[in-house]
Design a protein around this nucleic acid. Structure first.
Lengths: 250, 250
DNA sequence: CATTTGTTCCGTACGCCGTACGAGATTGTG
DNA sequence: CACAATCTCGTACGGCGTACGGAACAAATG
């Protein structure tokens, strides 16, 4: 059985390929644009999380019937794909600075900023990469940071993946705390105040010499929250050291 | 309003603290053990994914009524917390080898293996870390890899986070492909065969000099799938280079 | 012994979810 | 004008988590 082309692709690339959208179609005009719908879906996800973007809630927000959404989009997961590409396309990508180190730092900063502003991006799974034009633009821009430094093609991809993945992990750990607070309705600090006692009784039955000491230090450092960039910097600098060493060794 | 202690904690630590579980309780004995329930939930998640672990389906698998599950667990998210700690506790942790590099490689390998065998771990979000005894054991073990090399406490945590997070990202990218295949019912290869044409028409309207070249090379390298460890090695070795350089510079 | 009390078990029901289906309204085409 | 295609959207189905209440049961109490 042959596989049909994915119907979400023409939607993703709708602004790149003007196509025959100009041909007048029968029936009433659509009252909304797909851009408007996806923008509202993004706003909703920013405010309430990806799970809150249900077809009914989004439709009500847009002032249309729930099923009307399905005349714009085949299903919910296609909508999420469109959201990702559209939100990635919003950021205009600064020109690459001079040194490799500065370039990769910029790549990480941009990724972290996007994931912080749209934490639901971290919840998007099961999407084939490299689908939409803006994601393509982003990948192209990221690769331009490591072009011409002596890496082969596969290594370029792996380097970008490494840096971008690390930035996403930083955002993910931040997001995990917020998500837990939101789900339970209890702030992180309140939770620890209420549970330090019971937890202490339990851990007393086991030995956690390192975890106890280090966990506390890391928790305080995080709680102090001096520089939000601080969490990023240690890991990122180690990664960049490793990449620079590799590049200059060739 | 004071916050109550989290009722999932006694469940998590039930095997560590024998507590008053021995006291005979009124009413009929519970027909199942919590361990059995969580084990079945883990098996179900391994087979069908975390989303397939619904209270009804799990209860049917266990041969009990759906609502009976709530006499063992307060709610579904508590069940997931128990699943995580229990599955993390299954692996027995090998002793740490001699060099820092070997140690961190082992930490990464173990993390990757767990995430590959139980890909649903990557879907677990909103869980406060450091909750259960086995997660604590794991963290203790991971920290022992970087103990005594000259890092301060916060740096030890960041180093472990860096390595573990990278291994998880490798598993995540593998999982993303499988998840997309499962959701759409179309294998990755089939999808690209069916969509290479349309996608080519779209990308022809835009310039992706690097992304086109590198994406193809990376895709082929992945498709060839020579050594599964290969994907891990490049990024991990760069990270370890960076960590070693930092450690020896102090 | 009988009664009370706290548990376990679980059927029913409510309000969510994604979405299949089909009826009516609206528009361009022959 | 009639026809055909398209948009809009109410209804409905099967899933989800889980609140609630009743029945069965076993230990504590009289």
């Amino acid at each position: 059985m042959p596989v049909e082309p994915d119907p979400v692709l023409p939607l993703l690339w709708r602004h790149v390929v003007p196509q025959e959208a100009e041909a007048p179609r029968r029936g009433p005009r659509q009252r909304l644009t797909l851009d408007r719908i996806v923008d509202d879906a993004i706003a909703l996800a920013d405010e309430e999380g990806l799970a809150a973007v249900s077809m009914r809630v989004l439709a009500r927000r847009l002032g249309i019937g729930a099923m009307t959404l399905y005349t714009y989009v085949d299903n919910r997961s296609d909508l999420v794909v469109l959201m990702v590409d559209q939100v990635v396309g919003r950021r205009d990508l600064p020109p690459m600075p001079g040194t490799l180190r500065e370039r990769l730092r910029l790549v990480a900063d941009v990724q972290l900023a996007d994931c912080r502003e749209h934490a639901w991006l971290l919840d998007v799974t099961g999407v084939r990469p490299w689908l939409g034009p803006h994601v393509g633009d982003r990948y192209e821009w990221q690769l331009s940071a490591v072009e011409g430094v002596g890496l082969d093609d596969v290594e370029m991809d792996q380097t970008v993946t490494l840096v971008v993945g690390f930035a996403a992990n930083v955002a993910r750990s931040e997001h995990a705390v917020r998500a837990a607070e939101k789900e339970s309705g209890v702030s992180d600090l309140e939770w620890w105040e209420a549970n330090a006692g019971p937890l202490g009784e339990f851990t007393a039955h086991r030995d956690y010499p390192l975890a106890g000491r280090v966990g506390q230090a890391a928790g305080e450092a995080y709680q102090a929250g001096t520089d939000p960039a601080r969490e990023l910097s240690f890991g990122l600098e180690r990664i960049l050291d490793g990449i620079e060493a590799y590049v200059s060794s060739r």
